[in-house]
Amino acid sequence: MNHIDMVLVEDDPMVMAVNEGFIKRIEGFSIISTARTGQEAITIIQSLRPQLVILDIYLPDLDGIQVLKEIRRQGIPSDVIMITAAQDVSTVQDVLRFGVIDYIIKPFKFERIQAALNNYQSYYEQLRDRGEMNQEDLDRLIKISTVGEVEFNLNREGLPKGLREITLHKVFNYLNEKQLCLSAEEVAEGLGLARVTARRYLEYLEKSGKIFLETRYGFVGRPINKYKVKL
């Protein structure tokens, strides 16, 4: 798996340690550097150009908004997730105008940053190695629901060990797009997964009530389990 390079910007050593601990629990990310001041953050981001920056607003010199504006002014193509205690509407609007991927308010639980990083990983993987995108791809990327699409939210605390949310979404979305009854083997082939892996995700989705199971019997051999998204 390709890891997403990250830089963490936080002036409080204890908060930095907590954030690092949370991120190390999430598969697919690599912390390549940290910064405790705004100017240090700009210098590191200029040099390393990470895919993702976790940025606090309240820093001892430049604030996080100034850092965000400066890296945008320089055209540095790093995505930014803001983690801060700032809750005023003007601050939220300001950073959203400069294209942050997410905004997390302190204090926060592990599940919130896990959701943010899983969403970013999905976003990153959808864009990687693409030359162009059609309207359906773009709508899915920016979370626009069209008629007939199914809203899909899972309780991450209930996810069995060994299952990853990003793969769960891929399996569900594949079934949702096909709108057909598909076997684990067909889903595995379509997504490039092992059949046993696809079956585990399908069984979890069926038990969660997101999809339904249909058992089909042929003339010979074992019955085949087919899965389809509930309409």
Rank of each mutant, 00 (worst) to 15 (best):
M1W: 02
H3L: 12
I4K: 01
D5Q: 03
M6W: 02
M6T: 10
V7L: 05
V7R: 00
V9T: 02
V9A: 03
E10G: 03
E10A: 03
D11V: 04
D12P: 00
D12N: 13
M16G: 06
M16A: 12
N19S: 05
E20A: 08
G21I: 07
I23T: 04
I23P: 04
K24C: 05
R25S: 06
I26E: 03
I26S: 04
E27C: 00
G28F: 09
F29C: 04
I31G: 04
S33L: 05
T34Y: 09
A35H: 07
A35T: 07
R36G: 04
E40C: 00
A41V: 00
I42W: 05
T43E: 13
I45Y: 04
I45E: 06
S47E: 14
S47P: 04
L48G: 00
P50L: 13
L55R: 12
L55C: 09
Y58K: 15
Y58V: 15
Q66W: 02
V67K: 10
I71L: 14
Q74A: 08
D79C: 07
I81A: 07
I83L: 05
A86T: 11
A86E: 15
V89Y: 02
V92K: 14
V92R: 13
Q93A: 12
D94R: 08
V95F: 03
V95I: 15
D102I: 07
D102V: 07
E111P: 01
R112E: 05
R112V: 14
I113W: 01
Q114F: 05
A115K: 04
L117A: 01
N118W: 01
Y120R: 10
Y124W: 10
Y124N: 01
E125G: 01
R130H: 09
R130Y: 03
G131E: 14
E132D: 10
E132I: 00
E132V: 01
M133L: 13
N134M: 03
D137M: 14
L138G: 01
D139K: 11
E149F: 10
E149N: 14
V150R: 14
V150D: 03
N153W: 05
L154V: 15
N155M: 03
R156V: 13
E157I: 11
L159P: 13
K161N: 13
T167H: 07
L168Y: 00
K170M: 06
F172P: 01
F172M: 06
Y174V: 09
K178D: 01
K178E: 09
C181H: 12
L182K: 12
L182P: 09
E185M: 12
V187G: 05
L191D: 04
A194V: 10
R195S: 10
V196F: 09
R199A: 14
L202Y: 09
E203D: 14
L205Q: 09
I211S: 00
F212D: 02
E214L: 00
Y217W: 15
G218T: 12
F219M: 12
V220T: 15
G221N: 11
R222G: 04
P223C: 11
P223Q: 11
I224F: 05
I224D: 15
N225Q: 15
K228W: 00
K228I: 15
K230L: 15
